[in-house]
Amino acid sequence: MADRRYVRRFGRSERLQHLVLLVTFLGLAATGLPLLFSDAAWARPMAQLLGGFGVTGTLHRIFAASLIAVSLVHVSWIALRVLRGERGVLWGPTSLVPQPRDLVELYRHVRWFLWRGPKPAFDRYTYWEKFDYLAVFWGMVIIGGSGLMLWFPEFFARFLPGWAFNVALLVHGEEALLAVGFIVTIHFFNSHMRPRKFPMDMVMFTGVVPEEEYARERPLEYARLKSKAALEALLAPPPDPRFERRARLGGGVAIAVGLMLFVLIVVASLTR
């Protein structure tokens, strides 16, 4: 195992962005859910636990500002890469932008689910990973936008009609419910907890993936890297075991918190 080769899939910046996203997302969910489900039995104790009215609200805004900041950094980072002439960012096999190919892969993947065909060969990003990624953009615009409206209503009311705030309040909660529900069930399953990945996929934390796993899961990307002789440059040493242990612990805590929030949502919905 010592000479097992690893391929670098995510850089330091991407991993750090994911980490900030993860922490702020769960923080926003934990501080926002008591308000959204204020009639649930757990809402009052949880709001008290998080520091009460003033503190919970302040934490929510700190997480929100951090998430908005990391989103702006991310968009600037993409823009910079495009401006620098990096190819394959906005289109092509290495891009996260949905393309006709993704529909074909979805179709083939479902056929594979139903034992009606071979598993499709995926490239650098699969269709469900693109959905996860773009959902964050959609969520940032909808939840972030409505959140800012609710944070600074007096400013936004200078040019927005009153009903816009009714819509903002509704949409902020509903979209948050969608985001939390999606992340802690679908994203957790697809990326971490499905049988082949259980309990979690470490690549977003360590940045590297074993070469044979890469070749098996993303054969098109692997073949292209090999043919372009780009693979050598991406080979990396195995992750530091101590770092990996810490990352596993942190990731595990995040998954546990996420699932706990999901249970609270289910309890609140069933007892409403």
Partner: peptide, 20 residues
Amino acid sequence: HTLLWFARERIGPSDEGAHH
């Protein structure tokens, strides 16, 4: 999507790698 995927990975023998 998730349930089908789970069932396929859980009970089906993997044919991953068959295509390459």
